[in-house]
Design a binder for these strands. Sequence first.
RNA 1: GCAGGCGUGGCGAAAUUGGCAGACGCACUAGACUUAGGAUCUAGCGGAGCAAUCCAUGGGGGUUCAAGUCCCUUCGCCUGCACCA
Length: 943
Amino acid sequence: MYNTKEIEEKWQKYWTEHETFKAENKSDKEKYYILVEFPYPSGHGLHVGHVRSYTALDAMARLKRMEGYNVLYPMGWDAFGAPAEQYAIKNHIHPKKAVEENIKVFKGQLLRMGYSFDWSREFSTTDPSYYKWTQWQFLKFYEQGMAYKAEKEINWCPNCKTGLSNEDAQGGVCERCGSKTEKKLKSQWLLKMTKYADKLLEGLKETEFLDKIKTAQINWIGKSEGASVYFPLEDLDEALEVYTTRPDTLFGVTFMVMSPEHKLIEKYASKIKNIDEVKKYINEAKEKTEIERTDATKEKTGVKLEGLKAINPINNKKVEIWISDYVLANYGTGAIMAVPAHDERDYAFAKKFGIKIIPVIEQITGEKQENETFKNSIVAVVYDETTNKYLTLNWGDLGGRLFIGGTRQENETAIECAKREIEEETGYNNIEFVKEILPINHHYYAYNKKTAYEIESTGLLFKLQDNNKVEAKLDEDEKDKFKVEWVTKEEITESVTDELHITTFTNLLNDNAYTGDGKMINSGFLNGITNKKEAIDKMIEYIEKNNIGHRTTNYRLQDWIFSRQRFWGEPIPMVYCEKCGWVPVPYEDLPILLPDVTAYEPTDTGESPLANITEWVNTTCPHCGSPAKRETDTMPNWAGSSWYWLRYMDPKNDKEFAAYDILKYWGMVDLYNGGMEHATRHLLYARFWHEFLYDQGLVPTKEPFKKRVAHGMILGENGEKMSKSKGNVINPDDMVKTYGADALRVFEMFIGDYTKDASWSEFGLKGCKRFLDKIYRLKDKVTNKNGYSKDLENIINKTIKKVTEDIHTMNFNTAVSSLMILSNEYDKKEELTKDDYRILLTLLNPIAPHITEELVSITGLGSPICETKWPTYDETKMKDETVVIAVSVNGKLRGQMTVPTDTDKEELTRLAKSLDNIKKHIDGKEIIKEIVVPNKIVNIVVK
RNA sequence: GCAGGCGUGGCGAAAUUGGCAGACGCACUAGACUUAGGAUCUAGCGGAGCAAUCCAUGGGGGUUCAAGUCCCUUCGCCUGCACCA
């Protein structure tokens, strides 16, 4: 019928020759900057996933241009990184060559898809004219003290033989190769990203990122507010500093834990009596991989430091010190105060090693009342192993099912009290104590005694030994009031309603630390406070006044480890001189080019391959002129992508990375699309980089991106991620060959919700090709007439509205579907006007640009769509003359009627009641209510 | 464990935001045209029933004249973070 290849090539040539998509740096038009993450030009070529996001934003770009915006939709290459390096090593060529080849392939594929990129702005991060400015910006960081070299425990990938940032080693796994990472002490360049933690949080407010992206960033930054507290070491002129978010629990500290890497261990090794045991533990911890160490489900391990004690500055009590790998060296101070009663991890640790647990917060049940009388009491749960049941008292109307409760008498322990009460009320006397849980603060009103009580209730669990019983000793007022019943756990959950009793039961079964709010006890001046924030503030005030600590904020975010021990990256422009130390390369000497060699291998010493290239390494000190050595580490992959959107604005500038007035014209990226996998890495780095440049007055906006959206993945036909090994990879080139670029574009837009994953389906693609064929055939129905066909006016206007809105909101699937509906309408007709046809082609043009232009051209419908305006719709033409009203009785659909639009309520009711099927359902019944929603529904409620 | 999301035919999905569930497409079935069909056209297509009707948006409960949509609860799946003190 038609040759897609010919048509596509024809129009691609047309666009290139006419510079249709060239963005102007000066324009009267309003600007709109659309950015899609630039690809890493791998040897595998374009992925159908690329096609999805590029097509989506291409549709947006084309629409915006037709709406009269000066649209910047650029494309380039993020080409530094390991794969090119590996490939080059294997084939003994320079990675530059490999990159050039791959870019050629990639670009060819993109061109064949007909994307409206402004190719005049293309660049690669590996171009010296680009990375010159990446290096330049690094020097700015250095100048401001934002880049520093430090000996640091870093994530080391033994396979890639390079250090990694925390973001690249999430979960203790190397992002690139999947190997488990190790910790290695190495001297590294770092960027002080922590200094921007608050700005990165604050800046989010100025953006319109998807909520899940914002949340991911917020979590990654991990801001927490709390206090630093100093615990003096006994008999030493030293204090152990800890960070806590719960200074309100300071009175509940029963031990301290240091991470195995803590410096004080080494320092006071001579004081530690069991230092051999301690060292053994430290070595074991070191041996473990990051994954093993941070597995939250594993059992706690640790060693007590004998001979070293800390003093709780709040009450001067001596506290034992342990080391354990559940405390992380790189968060807070690498040491914690442990409050087992109110922290899950400390609780587990204390339980395992038999450390004392002091409760300082009581869970509160019941409502506080006026004039309460205080008493101590117990709730005792007795468990019978043989029947798997629990002992309860069924009080019937007097309080329902309860466990055994009672008031503690003077000089009576909780256990004694419980045993006494159990025997008195049920007669069982051979029971074994199992455990006691943290006390609960309970409030209730006793109607029989007309008294309000506040009680401190201790929950206890006992095990029934045998069924021996003595006679119960009941008070007069208790006789015949309750029945003793053994019931299952399920019955308890259903029938015990008393808040204290059911809470006690749950807590006994769960056996957890209590981390919630409650009433402060055992806490000196904090006693009685029931508000957590108040308790925290009061404690911080106290410790600050007494110089034992201060308010602090902590972040999970760490400084950005910026060194990579690799060849194929931007050289870090620093020189080391024996006399002057680290000296920055002067700006005028940039770029520091990578040497033109083809032989380099990662070294086993952990040094960059560049270290072996002596003629490159040896240089002179820019400061004193003595012999000096270049930094051989290179920048991470993320460096080049941390400012590329700025370069697109002014890509040929050789005086500065981009002229300020041009940056000002383009401003923020209006719409930025990329994968969800970059929500915490690239996006964080890029924002950090940009915010830094803003603070240096080098860019005009605080935040780089206004709106960030994320596309879903295209999965294989089997629903799994496409991969070579699974054999489910779809090559876009093959699809373009068989079905044409337009069909592929339409299908990827139609496949489903743009933000969600979708499985590939070649059948689906065929369907879209059929849709385009149908549109092609429609050309034979076009007459010489102008204007819309009268009977199509309504649907045409509706479709214009729908498609316009759907593309703007990125609901491409429904945009395509509404165009299918429109073309189905056209198909029913014998003839179409020129305008009927042209509007369909125009609306489809952003998604299928080639065939629509071709049809406009061969049907003689005027100038190319890309040179015309986006259509508007006429609301008044969209009104239907008649509307179908659903009629239901008691909410069940019983009939339909077609009435003139905006028929009033009375008329609708009257008409509804006259329908045969409605009569049938309402006759002889009382009408209770008539609900009428004009143009929608009539519902008659009868009895 | 915490946070977020999702759950609708055989499949991909729609549903004007509380108002006729399943638009549109795929697959499938029957038929027409055809030398042929991976082309095109016509009809059908959630389940049960001859039908009237009934049942159906993971399960259970609730609010409402009316629930895929709101609330509670439960199960399942996915994603992110995960011993962050």
